[in-house]
Simulated assay, not measured.
Amino acid sequence: MTERRRPRRSLTRKSAGALADWSVPRQLRGAPDKTKAAESAMSRGLRPRLEQADKVGTSICPYCAVGCAQLIYAKDGKPIHVEGDPRSPINQGTLCPKGAATFGLMLSPQRLDHCLHRAPGAGEWRRVTLDWAMDRIAHLAKRTRDEGYVARLPDGTRLNHTLSIGSLGGATLDNEENYLIKKLFSGGLGMVFLENQARV
């Protein structure tokens, strides 16, 4: 019988302890120090989440072309928190849900930090170097462009264009990057189909 009663006594003690630590009864009794009246054992042990940061850097949100400024808090060279920069006239310290997820994007174990290649007809991806991937992309882009390149019409009208390759830009590209893309792809490679994800 006594063994069965022990858990009840322990539960009663825990309940009494939780009630004694609960701030509402102290506030209702009219404790003289309102700050102390609202404290609990748990809140007294809480520390500011950014207290551990030994460095704060600035960045721009990578998700769209708005360009919201961010503060990156780091400890020992690793990010521990990301928030909006209140000094920015664009976002004034706020971030949309995508921007607020930047921290998860940076540290997600599922984020790829290397290049993968799957050969035509292959079922498996293989890891390749960035140099190899860039050379491969340049080679295929040049080959595809050359295969469909039209320098002149039969009547001699100069065209210098290709319909066999196109570009779909992302919303994270700013005006300057889009300007250079237009000059390179349209003027340099003769691409006709240029579009941007921000308009689609």
Rank of each mutant, 00 (worst) to 15 (best):
S15L: 13
I60W: 01
D155V: 09
D174V: 04
A101F: 14
M191E: 07
L194P: 10
A65W: 12
L19F: 02
L105V: 14
L184R: 04
K182A: 10
R44M: 02
G148E: 00
R127H: 06
V200M: 09
D21F: 01
L153D: 13
R127W: 04
L11C: 05
W22H: 13
D85C: 03
L50T: 05
Q92F: 08
G67S: 05
P89T: 02
A41R: 06
R143G: 08
N175Y: 12
F193L: 07
V82C: 04
L140H: 11
S23F: 14
R4M: 08
W22A: 10
W125Q: 13
L130R: 10
L107D: 13
K183A: 04
T162H: 02
R9H: 09
G45T: 10
H114M: 08
R49S: 08
A37G: 04
R29W: 14
K78P: 03
G187Q: 08
I80P: 10
L163N: 13
Q110W: 08
L11S: 10
P120Q: 11
G84M: 07
D21Q: 00
R4E: 13
T172I: 10
R127I: 15
W125T: 06
A101H: 14
N196G: 03
A119P: 06
L194F: 00
A65D: 13
P62F: 06
H114C: 08
L184I: 14
L163K: 14
T12I: 14
I90M: 12
P62G: 00
E147Q: 11
S59V: 09
V128W: 01
R145C: 11
S108N: 07
A100Y: 07
P89D: 02
K142N: 11
N196D: 12
A119T: 06
D54V: 09
P32Q: 05
G17K: 09
L112N: 02
V200Q: 02
L168I: 09
E176F: 08
P109S: 06
R9W: 13
L11H: 07
A171Q: 06
A41V: 15
G45Y: 10
T157P: 11
R8H: 12
L168Q: 15
G123I: 04
T144Y: 07
R5W: 10
L19V: 05
Q70Y: 02
L112Y: 03
I165V: 14
N91H: 09
R4H: 05
V82F: 06
G17M: 08
G67W: 11
S40T: 15
V150C: 05
G156L: 01
M106W: 13
A119Y: 05
E195H: 03
R8C: 09
L112S: 03
A100L: 06
S167Y: 15
T172E: 12
C96M: 07
G188W: 03
L189D: 00
A141H: 05
D113K: 14
D135W: 02
R29C: 15
A69K: 00
A16L: 12
H81N: 05
R152T: 14
S10N: 14
V128H: 02
I80A: 04
V66A: 11
A37H: 00
Y63F: 12
G30D: 01
G104F: 03
V192W: 04
